[in-house]
Design a protein around this nucleic acid. Sequence first.
DNA 1: GCATTAACACGTA
DNA 2: TACGTGTTAATGC
Length: 252
Amino acid sequence: MAPIGTRSTVEDATVGARVAKRTASTISYNAALLSARWARDLTDELRRRVSAETTIHSVAAGGYVCRKGDRVESWIGVLDGLVKVSSVSPEGKSVSFIGVPSGGWFGEGSLLKDEPRRYDAVALRSSIVAYMPRNTFMLLLDSSVPFNRFLLIQLNERLGQFVAMVEYDRLLGPDARLAKELAALCNPLLYPGTGNTLPVSQEELANLVGLSRQRVNQGLRQLERARLVRVGYRGLTLLDLDGLRRYEDGVR
DNA sequence: GCATTAACACGTA
DNA sequence: TACGTGTTAATGC
């Protein structure tokens, strides 16, 4: 009975070939870990605990970061790459998607509620993922006001996102859903590191929004005509974040 | 109709 | 060269 250190699903998602390199890369990604917004105002002691106890794994494109039904043992952060979190209905039908780019953290809800994970998270491209153990997370929760403030803001923001998403899925067309997804990906409050340029291919975007790549391409050109984004090679620049949020499919 | 898949040519890293 | 992108045609709901 030694539950500590058992993380079979994490191992499944880890690229075997890269395990040997983990020690070296862990050091370089430690800086990324501690530069997260929630980590900035921690005491030195807490920062030390965080970097000592958080494990960092690389996940290959298409690999699982966590799976629905898993026991929730950690708070998950994307240090590099892009992760798709998909909520699915009991029938197995996908109902909503959210993208988590570098700098984003998720899973605090499941951690707080102490229930099995209710969604899958899949790396859309090769990603570096941090797993903060429940104990460390609880320690921060018990001892740091800035950390609590970060969580409160993030939860509130996320709640708004999900409420909006339900509405959009039913009321809006593909182009507008694409616009909303782009705005959500770049939400500065949730993901401060993202800036205004998204290194996201159209295929990744298609997976995120639930459309074909061709349809996403068509939608992007529409948004480009509306001067909301600039489409580039393997990425795009968001010109008008507010405009994207408000985009309502000028069809009628 | 509208979106998807399949297939192709082209440009970029 | 390998991969992402832009486009078109055929197919399905």
